[in-house]
Nucleic acid binder design. Structure first.
Lengths: 217, 217
DNA sequence: CTCCTTTCAATACGGTCGTATCGATACGAA
DNA sequence: TTCGTATCGATACGACCGTATTGAAAGGAG
């Protein structure tokens, strides 16, 4: 009779919500978000329709949870990159952050395909756009940390505006992963990987003054 | 009995195919590609379901025609920008090309929303990816023409690699319009417009050597 | 004029969708 | 043990989907 202390929880609810979200990610990466339905997700997760319904109630809630799950995954990955004194150098830290953000391997390419589907949703649904704004904020913060550390160590030319550089890097990240996503399947991931290295090279070139002139022309 | 000379064409078929595609574009920009169906498109175009069916046969054909129509529109717009001797200067030509490619007004933002939906499709369907590759080629050609003319007139620093610059601009274009698309509706379009001007400024700065140093910091 | 083909709206059909409902079952509380 | 509740798979329902079909209307060809 205790109001809600009675919880015969046979399974870990959050864990299964995450598993269902994973099933959704696999379907979306393989066939697109329009093939995602309660039924297809339930089948992919090895559950019944009713089970998914009980965990999420409505399809909209399922989609939002899956999106937030992706956001959490990326945010965790890039927040674990530790740049600073005694940690990673600017070049290596930036490389790690960009590698996490860009489709540098097949898993991340699959993830990028799902992102592209959610971007299309965000274009017509502000609720999704708000979540993507959070992703933007996380990426900006990680890049700001990397660039800020470069300023401290003098790895960046002193007159360079760090904020503008961060914004440029954000645009580059978006442009590069979008280019990778639109390639026909099977295209090797050389372009995103090369873009990472090109960005590192361009931004760490200020270390040696004689190479600064080369960078400009 | 003439095999097919008997054509009592009451309406211009191609014209109406374009009108139907326009209806699809409006729905996709407003509610997303998943709300596009034979029925909704027919209603938006003021036609019956049967009419749309006769013009396109299958929904897949309708989608591909609508995508190719968007491609043709953009290709026409950017190919009309004439850069060269007696025509537009590098700065002005680049400004025009970038203005056409980026969501610099509400119409182009609506178009960008539809592009984002087709990008998501291209991520899981090579047939759409192939069309987007054509868009890529058109953009690359237009930017190559602009940069090439800048090299001829010396508006670009001579050591700068034109091809690399074109690729950089392409990535910037993708990143900027994707950023604009994910903003909540009602967000002003200052960012894409500022990006156009920033690119112009950064690339035409080489005209005056004293400003080259400022650009680098 | 009469035919013949194209156009057209309307409707039918089979399928999938999101969601609601329902009996059976499993397990903690008493 | 018995009871009450949370979980479960299965199924029902109405809506919308893509597509096929059908019969009426329309306008050049003879």
């Amino acid at each position: 009779m205790c109001q809600n202390a009675f919880v015969p929880r046979y399974v870990d609810k959050d864990e299964r919500r995450r598993q269902v979200a994973g099933a959704l990610h696999r379907i979306a990466a393989r066939e697109g978000l329009e093939k995602v339905s309660i039924r297809t997700v339930a089948a992919e997760a090895g559950l019944s329709v009713g089970a998914v319904q009980r965990d999420f109630g409505t399809k909209d809630e399922l989609l939002h949870f899956a999106l937030r799950q992706m956001l959490a995954n990326v945010a965790k990955r890039i927040s674990e990159v530790r740049i600073g004194p005694g940690r990673l150098s600017f070049a290596e830290g930036l490389r790690r952050v960009l590698t996490e953000l860009l489709p540098t391997d097949d898993d991340r390419l699959a993830e990028a395909r799902v992102w592209s589907a959610f971007y299309a949703r965000a274009a017509v649904d502000d609720r999704f756009a708000d979540v993507l704004a959070e992703l933007d904020a996380h990426s900006r913060e990680a890049l700001r940390a990397a660039v800020g550390w470069a300023v401290e160590t003098g790895e960046l030319a002193p007159g360079q505006d760090p904020d503008a550089l961060v914004e440029l890097l954000l645009v580059l990240v978006d442009g590069v992963w979008l280019s990778a996503v639109r390639q026909p399947s099977g295209t090797p991931l050389d372009a995103p990987r090369a873009a990472v290295e090109a960005a590192i090279t361009a931004l760490t070139v200020a270390r040696r003054d004689d190479r600064a002139a080369d960078a400009r022309g």
